[in-house]
C-alpha cells in the first residue's frame, strides 16, 4: 500500500505510523462527561468501507495526515493535513 502525503507525495506505507480513526482530533472538553469521553476514546464506527483515519508521516515530513480510505479494498481516496482538516471541521 502506498499513501499520499500532501507534502511529500505518494510514499511507501512503511514510512507512516497509523493512529486510528480521525475522531481522535475531536477531543471533548474536560467536563463533557463519561459518555462523550467513552465515544472519543473507545467507541468507533469501524466501517467496512470508506473511513477517515490518522496517519503520522514519521519517516518523512512528520506531518499528521487524515487519510480517506476504503478499509475493504485498501483504496486511498484522499489525504489532507490534519491541521487543515481540523480547521475545516470535517474530521469525522
Amino acid at each position: 500500500m502506498r499513501l499520499p502525503c500532501p507534502i511529500c507525495g505518494e510514499r511507501d506505507r512503511r514510512e507512516f505510523t497509523y493512529s486510528g480513526a480521525a475522531v481522535a482530533l475531536e477531543r471533548p472538553g474536560a467536563e463533557a462527561g463519561s459518555e462523550a469521553w467513552d465515544d472519543y476514546l473507545h467507541n468507533r464506527d469501524n466501517p467496512a468501507g470508506v473511513t477517515r483515519d490518522l496517519w503520522y508521516h514519521e519517516q518523512g515530513c512528520a506531518a499528521w495526515i487524515v487519510m480517506t480510505r476504503n478499509t475493504a479494498t485498501h483504496e486511498v481516496l484522499g489525504a489532507a493535513l490534519a491541521s487543515e482538516a481540523r480547521r475545516a471541521g470535517s474530521t469525522s
Partner: peptide, 18 residues
C-alpha cells in the same frame, strides 16, 4: 471481525476496530 456491523443493527457503537 464483523461485530461492529452487527451491533450497529441494534443501534450500538462498539469499542472495536477491525
Amino acid at each position: 471481525g464483523r461485530s461492529s456491523q452487527v451491533a450497529a443493527m441494534a443501534g450500538m457503537r462498539l469499542p472495536i476496530e477491525s
